[in-house]
Amino acid sequence: MIREATPADIPLIHALIQELAAYEKAPHEARATEPQLHDALFGDHPAAYAHIATDDATGTPVGFALWFLNFSTWRGVHGIYLEDLYVRPTARGAGHGKALLTELARICTERGYERLEWAVLNWNTPAIAFYESLGARPQDEWTVYRLTDDALKKLAGRSS
């Protein structure tokens, strides 16, 4: 079962983000706090959205998807950028990841969005195989760039 996240899910979402960061071998990089997540998802101007996957038999939360809108200047419409998709290891293979992606695809088609995009680490071959089994294709002609921390401050003219 897939449901929209509620404010009561913030501790769960925070815990799942921490689990995902550990899985991706970068727990030190996951610095988001519960108040930040609450503001981003449920504040006056929500910047992101989340869905929770639960076990059908027990109702226990087993995963989540956190996403936000992007915009294609070429297509002239919004799309969804999936920031995080995570299913706990004990629940993998039961269809929860596919159900989360199916819900996001449903939202896209229902709202007239033409893209559902995300990034995956090159070493995460189980995820890559799963995404490709759904028909997703890598966009290997693009390279993602990122400015953070000191480099971002330096470019902004604000040294740390």
Rank of each mutant, 00 (worst) to 15 (best):
H51C: 11
T54Y: 00
L41W: 05
E29P: 01
I52E: 08
V62Y: 02
L16H: 06
H38Y: 07
Q36R: 07
D44E: 15
L37R: 01
P46C: 09
Y49P: 00
A21T: 08
H28Y: 10
T58A: 09
I52P: 00
D55R: 05
P35C: 14
D56G: 03
H51G: 00
P27D: 10
Q36N: 06
L41F: 12
E19N: 08
P27K: 06
A47S: 15
A50M: 11
E34P: 11
L37Q: 04
A26C: 14
G63W: 00
A26K: 14
Y23I: 02
A26M: 14
A47Y: 05
A30F: 08
P61W: 02
F64V: 01
A21H: 08
G43I: 10
F64S: 00
A30D: 11
T33Q: 03
A30R: 14
E34C: 10
F64G: 01
D56F: 08
L37F: 08
A40Q: 09
V62C: 14
D44T: 14
Q18V: 04
Q36W: 02
A53L: 06
Q18R: 15
L16R: 00
H51F: 04
H28N: 14
I52M: 11
L41H: 02
G63I: 01
A48R: 13
A50L: 07
T33W: 15
Q18L: 13
D56T: 10
K25F: 07
D44M: 11
A32L: 11
A40Y: 08
I52D: 00
A26W: 05
D39W: 02
A53N: 06
I17P: 00
A22Y: 00
T58I: 04
